[in-house]
């Protein structure tokens, strides 16, 4: 099933991204070994000039990966009509063993890409490029992940044969199964509801706090809060938000809400959620470098702005989820 337009596009994106990073790798090694901003040597000048090229190139790759994550999920959902027993993305991803790993790799790339973009942003604003070694070290470290993602996608897409009977979301997310996802969905609605609202409100509160007073402590907490809020949000979607959307007490699938049958409501949830989580985590990581004198003012501004984005993203997610619960005809709790 390689001749599907979206599959060709995804493989093209993954392939060209990996190729570009590999092209940047020798340069990254040179930067890590020879970068010396105090020197005025020919080599340093050349390196500085080349960083413009490779920073732009990697930023481009990161943007493409963010878009590819969206396209991957979108495509998995669309492909489900091709497989017997698959009713949404879960079925399509379960067709062979590489579907879910490919999704997880793509999501990992998404968060890595946003983090790299945030670091690049502050680094290119400081006069002495203090994070340039870290940036290119991160790039080298990311290459295996990019290669893995391409490998998993290739294995997944090449292994797809239309009509294979696959397990559908009904069996994977039903309460009896013993996978991790099913345990989360089996959470009784009430504690899940408390965790969901508690976790998200905490994440929003900490982000606003950091936005008001950008200090290290609140910054780290913003990062941790974003991670916790992200977890609480996913658990909440599995445990009860999806139930309210489907108006069905046992259908926990987090992918079916992306379908046109449910008016693409999932995108309204996931896009703000992922934006908020990525922004909050990046803010937390950036605070790690706030001690460097040339970076401090820039990081103050950036982490504050990122915390603002996180607060808005999580807030939007919470508002949309609450609206969906409110409008639903399902009654889970009296």
């Amino acid at each position: 099933m390689i001749f599907q337009p979206a599959i060709i596009a995804l493989l093209l994106a993954a392939g060209i991204s990996l190729f570009m990073l590999l092209a940047a790798a020798p340069f990254a090694v040179r930067v890590i070994r020879h970068w010396d901003v105090a020197s005025g040597s020919e080599r340093q000048l050349q390196l500085e000039r080349l960083t413009y090229l490779f920073s732009t190139l990697v930023a481009f790759v990161c943007l493409v990966q963010i878009l590819a994550a969206l396209l991957f999920v979108f495509n998995a959902d669309k492909m489900s009509v091709m497989f017997v027993g698959a009713m949404c993305a879960v079925g399509a991803l379960n067709v062979n063993a590489f579907g879910f790993p490919a999704l997880y790799a793509q999501l990992a790339l998404f968060f890595l890409a946003t983090l790299w973009l945030a670091i690049n942003h502050v680094d290119s604003r400081a006069r002495d490029y203090p994070l340039v070694r870290l940036k290119y070290g991160l790039l080298l470290a990311a290459i295996p992940l990019f290669a893995l993602s391409l490998y998993l996608q290739l294995q997944y897409f090449l292994g797809l044969k239309a009509d294979v009977i696959t397990s559908c979301c009904g069996s994977m997310f039903s309460e009896q199964a013993s996978t991790l996802a099913s345990e989360v969905s089996a959470l009784p609605p009430k504690p899940a509801l408390i965790g969901f609202y508690g976790g998200l409100c905490a994440a929003i509160g900490i982000s606003i706090w950091h936005w008001l007073r950008p200090r290290d402590g609140s910054g780290y907490l913003t990062g941790i809060g974003a991670l916790a809020g992200f977890g609480a949000a996913l658990a909440g979607i599995l445990a009860f938000v999806s139930l309210y959307i489907y108006e069905h007490p046992h259908h926990h699938c987090p992918f079916c809400i992306l379908k046109p049958d449910y008016a693409y409501q999932g995108y309204w949830l996931y896009i703000p959620l992922f934006t908020g989580a990525a922004a909050g985590m990046s803010a937390g990581v950036l605070r790690l470098f706030s001690r460097r004198p040339t970076l401090a003012p820039i990081i103050n501004i950036t982490s504050r702005a990122l915390a603002g984005v996180a607060a808005v993203g999580f807030g939007l997610f919470l508002a949309v989820a609450t609206l969906m619960i409110w409008r639903s005809n399902l009654i889970l709790l009296d």
């Binding site: 596009a9 060209i16 000039r49 413009y52 481009f60 969206l70 979108f74």
Partner: peptide, 28 residues
């Protein structure tokens, strides 16, 4: 939507990838 996103990958993506190096050359 999927179709527009796919088309975007087939056109804008190769274009941007192709002009990156020349742009850098001009800018430096």
């Amino acid at each position: 939507g999927l179709q527009i996103a796919t088309l975007f990958f087939f056109t804008v993506f190769p274009y941007t990838a192709a002009v990156l190096v020349p742009i850098w050359r001009a800018a430096t």
